[in-house]
Design a protein around this nucleic acid. Structure first.
Lengths: 102, 102
DNA sequence: CGGAGATTTAGCGAAGTGGCTAAGTATCAC
DNA sequence: GTGATACTTAGCCACTTCGCTAAATCTCCG
């Protein structure tokens, strides 16, 4: 269910759009999805050419946008995709399915 | 119809995502849509707090991403929304509707 | 405890973004 | 042509982004 507070929804859209603006971050989100919805930070980092700390930062951006969440498992951190968060984009796109005409 | 060349489609996704990452640009696209799909640069600029050249630049980014196109009409430039271009995002989001599981 | 593995934090530098003002280019009206 | 209207281009500056390496942290194993 979308948040009721319109300001919060705008902020969410903002964060999600900015997070997905970077190709590496779109790739991370897709990768996690196709690996079943959750992956450890190391597994994610291994799949990218960037240095690990660079990937860590991308993960933080995605998490701040609410697209990812993590939990500690032993000495690993497992990131889980918050698929529902992608809905804010769908909602935005839906505006264009209604004909415009002031 | 989506472009056949996968590289071109990736580039398109890239450009569109980056273009829509900025709130002002999302707003421009929405505004043009609700004004019937086309507006002059001046009408667009008038609706924003930014200085006109700033809006011009946003328009150029949106046009480079293929979300807007313009034609000259007298001394005005009329920008038209290319609604179909938004489909590259829908296509990307569609990946998440198929269950992941390597 | 000591050490190795997994991951983040800190901090740097190059490059890009987004705002502005001022100046330029068309086009129309007289 | 002259002047006003409608925009864009050029150029500047503050700030952010994104890559890196080096150092810290946290957790398990023996």
């Amino acid at each position: 269910m979308p948040s009721a507070d319109p300001e919060e929804r705008l902020a969410a859209l903002d964060a999600v759009c900015e997070a997905l603006a970077h190709p590496a971050r779109r790739q991370i989100v897709l990768t996690v999805h196709f690996r079943g919805g959750s992956m450890s930070a190391g597994d994610i980092a291994k799949r990218f050419a960037h240095a690990w700390p660079t990937t860590t930062r991308h993960l933080r951006v995605l998490e701040a946008a609410g697209l990812l969440a993590h939990e500690k498992v032993g000495r690993s951190r497992v990131y889980r995709l918050e698929r529902a968060r992608l809905d804010v984009i769908k909602e935005w796109l839906a505006w264009f399915d209604r004909p415009g005409g002031c």
